[in-house]
Nucleic acid binder design. Sequence first.
DNA 1: TACTAAGCGAGACGGTACGTCAGGTCTTTCG
DNA 2: CGAAAGACCTGACGTACCGTCTCGCTTAGTA
Lengths: 208, 208, 208, 208
Amino acid sequence: METGPNSGVGDEVRADPARPGRPRSERARQAVLAATRDLITDRGLPGLTVDDIAGRAGVSKATIYRWWPTKAAILMDAFTDLVGARMTFPAGGDPLGRLRDQLGRVARLMNDPGARRPFVALVAASQHDPELAAALRDRFIATRRDAARELVTEAIRAGQLAPGADPDAVLDMLYGALYYRLLISGDPLTADYPDRLVALLGAVRTPS
Amino acid sequence: METGPNSGVGDEVRADPARPGRPRSERARQAVLAATRDLITDRGLPGLTVDDIAGRAGVSKATIYRWWPTKAAILMDAFTDLVGARMTFPAGGDPLGRLRDQLGRVARLMNDPGARRPFVALVAASQHDPELAAALRDRFIATRRDAARELVTEAIRAGQLAPGADPDAVLDMLYGALYYRLLISGDPLTADYPDRLVALLGAVRTPS
Amino acid sequence: METGPNSGVGDEVRADPARPGRPRSERARQAVLAATRDLITDRGLPGLTVDDIAGRAGVSKATIYRWWPTKAAILMDAFTDLVGARMTFPAGGDPLGRLRDQLGRVARLMNDPGARRPFVALVAASQHDPELAAALRDRFIATRRDAARELVTEAIRAGQLAPGADPDAVLDMLYGALYYRLLISGDPLTADYPDRLVALLGAVRTPS
Amino acid sequence: METGPNSGVGDEVRADPARPGRPRSERARQAVLAATRDLITDRGLPGLTVDDIAGRAGVSKATIYRWWPTKAAILMDAFTDLVGARMTFPAGGDPLGRLRDQLGRVARLMNDPGARRPFVALVAASQHDPELAAALRDRFIATRRDAARELVTEAIRAGQLAPGADPDAVLDMLYGALYYRLLISGDPLTADYPDRLVALLGAVRTPS
DNA sequence: TACTAAGCGAGACGGTACGTCAGGTCTTTCG
DNA sequence: CGAAAGACCTGACGTACCGTCTCGCTTAGTA
């Protein structure tokens, strides 16, 4: 998904070499992202209009369309900006414990309305927008998933999980359960829910 | 969700008592649902227009709006009509085997484009449409889920699953894994995938 | 210029055979034309916006664009509606007198702000819009011009104008003088101005 | 109309004493006027964009707006630059002959696309731009018109025109005929057309 | 040799109007 | 009285130009 030159987190495309012309307004960029976060509701992407974003941000529609190709791209950036920092991976402890911590972070994210609303909107929109789906995977899911797979492998090696377990299937089940509650059942993601999931899996033993 | 008088599967609301006036055209109803199934694509609900449905069905928009309140309701009916029959619950065998069979049916449904496209569109749309979300749960998910919970309980009783397991968490993980692949990762739902999931869980034993 | 089905004066395209569907709203049509006449100013066509017309007429833009392809077409219809009636050709009298009367009518039209403003706007716009130019000629100028040419020919036959005079050049000069004051010099078109023009030409005699 | 400091023909505002700062770029000025002449088409002023002028001239929009307040002012300068020289008034001969020569020059101007296009665009734009209208009269029409009025007066004195003729009405008719063909009828301005106009008027005699 | 002043190209900015599109509602006529 | 046809209002869309604004660079006169 093309989300604009400066859309990423740490990639300042034209920080350096003093290109000619008026530089991009960081103020405008931030105002657009903030307005988007303010305006996203449970109505999702369709309930968000570019005109409203422009109006609240004090920015012209032309400026928005200059830097973001679609509403979804704006929301993607707004979400990434918001979430990026707080989703660093947990450090110490045994593999399964760290995996549980990571699940807990994701669950807390899904519980915070400020994050849940844009996230759900993005997941919903990505169902009919392949570019957005790819961007969501690349910029939010993939890295965490890769790290988590590493933890599962370690856990297997450490005997915390059954030796023959398929790490991807394990992760599908753990994260899938969270997404299932978020998107399908609407059941609450209580604080102990990640623990219960991991406990269920951690108990796996190949029958002797 | 209000999906119109005749929205259900077998409920002909005014079959009988010869009310005055021209009766509702069953032909029109079928044409609308067929057109909807034909026109739904990976572009989802936003890629489906009522005008197009009306045009392809040879039906006027007014007729559509007389019987369905929204596009989503039409698609809901179209999907229910399509799926209802083939999702009867499997009968014989041990509890875990029957659960695996049921997972397999859901996975096959998710693999068939004719069913996957409307289903994904409905799930996506239900993220910002509480009525649709409720309708989807009531008419597609809940009954199957209840039956599945019964199977899990039986499996625990039968010693196929750990005694302390939380049936809801178990189901969240199993179905969640399917939904995760369908909606998030896009990884294929191979024929053996349900087996692998159940195997992973079936191996659960409380550590002695 | 395509100015919409019912754009002409007396051509009711679909008055007759009871076509299916909701009939075109005559109320909307009149409201658009009236709003256009109200909103046209000395700022010309660029000073007139379709949004404003829609707003004042209580009509949607979509409806406007359904029936008129451009702003100019709307104004053309508004002008034709307004002017059509009052520009019937004068009847009795000698040829030169009737020509003078006709010039007088045109001059009065050019003096009436309600007519002058749309007319000047149309002439200006027609300079960079060939379709509009053709429509203006066909629907406002041509018929009158043909009748006037007939009068000049009669006047020549009657000895009121020089035998060798080129009728087209004569008309170019008479009408051209009016347009010159309207468009170029801005000098007033006084009531006696047409008389003075005709007098000047009526005095033409080939030198004996 | 305010057409910028150096917009006129002979008024070099800052010819004088070496003001501080970088002097205005004559290259830029010429490039803008040339680009404007190149880009003006039968689409008129609305078909000409400042961005395009800037692009083709290799000049920034800011520079353009520093020296010209509007598109029309640019075109006005471009036209004046182009036409100024070749429209000097004819010298020798009898008054009516010189008037005919002058009409011929104007007609040739109106036939040359390079001049006609900007001229028509200016006349059209001046219909809803009073400043432009005034500038057009002052800088292109007035002087010629004054000289022509002098010729008509001479012609009357010399017996080439009727003694009682109103010079202004005569000029309105002669020039009006040219403008009528240019702006309204679109009929060609043939080489002999001015002759025919003058002949028609030159034949005027008060009936004995 | 600096320093100051203004013009310059590049290009982003806020704003306004454009013409289009889909959603729902309505008003006809026909069956 | 249901249904097809199709016109209607609403509101958001994405685009195009406008005229303004920052940049950093260039080109002169002045110190």
